[in-house]
């Protein structure tokens, strides 16, 4: 298959024999996986199998946790090994955005929340900020709800709106990759649907990795699915294949609801 986009040739993220430990406890065992560009990849698996941990390795936010460390293998983002000592962590994190499981807007105004990342990266021009904030809020279908109260607290929004605000905050800095850790786990079906629509829309411009417990959601909106169990990658492939005729018995029983 020949691709005209050069970025499609190099996987957005490629993981090789990754091992990861919290203190003495190994939670990721020899995971090897390529995450293609401009697609949605879903991570599924029972609770505690290391999905969040793996996701948090991609922007090295796990560095904060005392005792947490990669003990083997490598992660390449756009071909660059992110463990390199000369890596610019701030730039990595700007290019690899993250939406957290529990929505966490700052106790600032709606506008300041979205503008936060832009301001970090030196945008001072008020009109440029306003333009970008409006664009991002439109993108997450929040603009019409909040355009009259940009100055009021982000905490006054509903849960679903807050999560969409967090997504807007993440895309504001123009990342290439968006990592989402169970973005819909605390949302009602309608908000979930809105976020799924948003994902499908965002996929045109961004590479998205989403962790989810909602198998229906994974099958609805992802292109590729990876199934994890006890820190090991059991199987990965096109979503339709994983959900209809997986190779592994464990995958089959998980997606059919027999365990997990």
């Amino acid at each position: 298959m020949v691709s005209d986009s050069p970025s499609a040739a190099v996987p957005a993220i490629s993981i090789e024999n990754l091992r990861f430990q919290y203190g003495e406890k190994q939670v990721i065992h020899d995971v090897t996986l390529d995450i293609p560009s401009r697609e949605i990849t879903a991570f599924i698996g029972p609770s505690g199998c290391g999905k969040s941990t793996l996701l948090r390795c991609f922007n090295r936010i796990n560095d904060r946790i005392p005792g947490a460390r990669v003990t083997g293998g490598s992660i390449r983002v756009a071909g660059i090994d992110i463990a390199r000592p000369d890596l610019d962590l701030q730039t990595l994190r700007r290019r690899v955005g993250m939406v957290f499981q529990k929505w966490n807007p700052f106790p600032k105004s709606i506008f300041d929340n979205v503008a936060y990342g832009l301001r970090i990266h030196g945008e001072k021009d008020r009109s440029a900020l306003e333009e970008r904030v409006e664009y991002c809020l439109r993108r997450v279908a929040l603009w019409d709800d909040v355009k009259d109260r940009l100055k009021s607290s982000a905490f006054g929004l509903s849960g679903g709106q807050q999560q969409r605000l967090c997504i807007a905050r993440t895309i504001a800095t123009r990342p290439d990759i968006i990592l989402m850790d169970e973005p819909c786990s605390a949302l009602d079906p309608l908000s979930t649907l809105k976020i799924e629509e948003l994902l499908l829309e965002l996929k045109n411009d961004y590479t998205i990795v989403i962790v989810t417990h909602n198998l229906a959601q994974a099958s609805r909106c992802s292109d590729k699915t990876a199934f994890f169990f006890l820190g090991k990658l059991i199987e990965h492939g096109p979503t339709t294949k994983i959900f209809t005729k997986p190779d592994q018995q464990q995958t089959e029983s998980y997606v059919s609801g027999a365990f997990g």
Binding site: Q90, L92, R93, R94, M98, F100, N104, I120, R169, T170
Partner: peptide, 13 residues
């Protein structure tokens, strides 16, 4: 909350 710190760091701060 730790979430504020993580969100800020994850934005590249």
């Amino acid at each position: 909350p730790q979430g504020f710190r993580e969100a800020s760091l994850a934005l590249g701060a």
